[in-house]
């Protein structure tokens, strides 16, 4: 019988320090059994339990795109027991990943629409997956205009620098990167994400917004989108809660009757308006 608790064994192929405070590292995993990669078929917005034998598991959004073959990427903030342990692991070490879990962003339903992607801090991970997926030559024509707004406190806290710089040079995506305060030789925007959103966000007609960021960013960006005329059905967010099983069974991540792990983590603002704010 299939065991949804049993992680697929993976080897850490590479660890990249992402931020100047060294609190964020991106782990590139390769499956020990190549057939497991096929079983781990995922879409942007889903997450997995990263499983360190003897330490425990943490639910982390998948940062790679299904179009990237041979590996999966996760960017992990050092917070608790498992993530701190992972930050001391090395390339070549064996651990596990369990998933994919949750529902992806509803990209299949957004075909033909414009998409504005708004990210704050290290919540950008599943949106990196989304953009990489959308920019595939075969996929890109299915969607309208794509706008990417990404903010962090300082340049050294922005993730995936090489990638957003490359996206910026393309003409099929508009990229707006911002930091909270001016620093010397910074050639991009300055200001909080809500202010930049107000300035550059496309008109709401035929457009959906994907937002992922810290609560304070979401709190102040939501009114900006509302003022611009975005319907709550077209504002799509991803939630986080403490999790164990990831399967809708262990009972702790619920928001009202919905489990963030099994029924989310992706919800529209219209859905969240009808649910308790227990997240």
């Amino acid at each position: 019988m299939n065991n949804p608790y049993l992680p697929y064994p993976v080897r850490i192929a590479e660890i990249r320090v992402e931020t100047e405070d060294k609190n964020l590292r991106t782990f590139k995993f390769e499956f020990l059994n190549p057939e497991d990669e096929e079983k781990f078929a995922y879409l942007p917005g889903q997450f997995a339990e990263l499983s360190v034998p003897g330490q425990g598991e943490i639910p982390i959004g998948i940062a790679s795109s299904p179009s990237e073959k041979g590996f999966v990427l996760f960017t992990v903030n050092r917070v608790g027991q498992v993530s701190s342990y992972m930050h001391n692991m090395k390339a070549g070490d064996v651990m596990g990943i369990r998933g994919p879990l949750g529902h992806p962003y509803p990209l299949d339903k957004l075909k033909g629409r414009n998409i504005v992607i708004i990210a704050g801090g290290f919540a950008v991970t599943t949106l990196r997956s989304t953009i990489t997926y959308l920019l595939q030559p075969k996929v890109r024509p299915d969607f309208g205009k794509i706008t990417f707004i990404y903010g962090a406190r300082s340049p050294g806290l922005l993730l995936y620098k090489d990638e957003w710089m490359a996206w910026e040079k393309r003409d099929d995506i508009d990229v707006f990167v911002t930091i909270d305060r001016e620093v010397p030789n910074w050639g991009y925007k300055v200001g909080f994400v809500p202010a930049v959103t107000k300035e550059v966000c496309p008109p709401p007609e035929n457009t959906s917004a994907l937002i992922c960021g810290p609560p304070v960013m979401i709190k102040f960006t939501q009114p900006v989108l509302e003022e611009a005329g975005y319907q709550h059905e077209n504002i799509i967010m991803s939630l986080e809660n403490r999790m164990k099983c990831g399967l809708g069974i262990c009972g702790r991540c619920n928001v009202g009757p919905e489990y963030v792990c099994k029924d989310g983590p992706v919800f529209t603002l219209a859905q969240l308006n009808r649910l308790p704010k227990e997240y």
Binding site: N3, Y5, L6, P9, L32, P53, G54, V94, M95, G96
Partner: peptide
Amino acid sequence: LMAFHNDASKPQAFVYQS
């Protein structure tokens, strides 16, 4: 639910088995 061994000289070290 599952167990692993940490003997790197044997197969399946650090791999959980149901």
